[in-house]
Amino acid sequence: MRVLVTRPVLDAQKWVKDLASAGFDAYALPLIEVRAAMDEAPVHKAWKRLAEFDAVMFVSGNAVAYFFASKPTVAHMFTVQSATKTRAFVPGPGSYHALMQQGVAAECVDVPALEVGQFDSEALWAVVKGQVKTGFRLLIVRGSGEHGAAAGDGVGRDWFADQARRQGAWVEFVVAYQRVAPQLNEAQKALALAASHDGSVWLFSSSEAIANLGISLPGHDWSRGRAVATHPRIARAARELGFDVVCESRPLLVDIRASIESLR
């Protein structure tokens, strides 16, 4: 069974490898392109002010990678030995492993437990809400959509910020990267058109990717398409584009495998 992984290029590679190991004919069809932020000055300023914050929430692995790409040579942060006890909040294992690759101490990180199987802002809030009190200072590192607008999957991030503010926190955002719609080449368009009706399964982990698919192939009939979505909001976006068969799945490989198998 062919499976199309729609995550950005670097993120898609691991999923393609894992799905191929599970016996699927997996291909990467990135529907989001990730680039450095148009203005990197705010990230440099955020690093200089990092000690002011009680916690930094990284919305994704890309947020980690692009934020740390601007890390000063001397920045003793997110270590057990540091005198500044700023916490790192992440919504799932991808962003957690990205922090580990940057040398962040695991003891400084809050992340939903793997066995919970839900990796989003709601799950993260359940883990950290006890820390957030009046005067708590939170920095949220996020991406932006094309033309500087908030990225399409920012609903959960805004919800998280609202919860923090309701408990008396002071919240700031900084844009570390931008997400743009890719320019699909002719081979990619042919693959997408074929996969819309030949029994392939689309793996969607972002509603922004679904929106970009609609932009790339405007007016196309997706009613014969089949998809697995890793969040109810994403599943809703797939149905709104026209996908008739959409299976919701937890974002764990074992669950995604089972969801894909259910569509045979």
Results as ranks from 00 to 15, higher is better:
2 R>T: 12
4 L>S: 07
8 P>V: 08
13 Q>Y: 00
16 V>P: 08
17 K>P: 00
20 A>N: 14
22 A>Y: 06
25 D>P: 07
26 A>G: 04
27 Y>E: 15
30 P>Y: 02
30 P>M: 07
33 E>M: 04
37 A>H: 04
48 K>T: 13
51 A>Y: 01
55 A>Y: 03
58 F>T: 01
60 S>G: 11
61 G>S: 07
63 A>W: 05
67 F>R: 01
67 F>W: 11
70 S>L: 13
76 H>E: 12
77 M>C: 11
83 A>N: 10
85 K>M: 09
86 T>R: 06
88 A>L: 04
88 A>Y: 02
88 A>R: 01
89 F>G: 00
90 V>L: 07
91 P>I: 05
91 P>A: 04
91 P>D: 00
93 P>Q: 14
93 P>S: 12
93 P>I: 11
96 Y>P: 00
97 H>G: 03
97 H>F: 12
98 A>W: 06
102 Q>S: 00
106 A>M: 13
111 V>R: 08
112 P>E: 09
113 A>H: 11
126 A>H: 10
136 F>I: 06
137 R>M: 06
137 R>S: 13
141 V>P: 02
145 G>F: 13
150 A>V: 08
156 G>I: 08
156 G>Y: 06
156 G>K: 06
158 D>F: 09
158 D>V: 03
165 R>K: 15
166 R>A: 14
167 Q>N: 11
168 G>F: 11
169 A>T: 04
171 V>K: 08
171 V>S: 10
176 A>I: 01
177 Y>V: 03
177 Y>S: 02
180 V>M: 03
181 A>K: 11
185 N>D: 15
197 H>G: 14
202 W>S: 00
205 S>I: 07
206 S>V: 14
209 A>H: 05
209 A>S: 14
212 N>M: 01
212 N>A: 02
221 D>G: 07
223 S>C: 13
225 G>D: 04
233 R>S: 12
236 R>P: 00
237 A>T: 01
237 A>C: 05
244 D>W: 04
245 V>G: 00
248 E>V: 14
252 L>P: 00
255 D>S: 14
257 R>S: 08
258 A>M: 05
263 L>D: 06
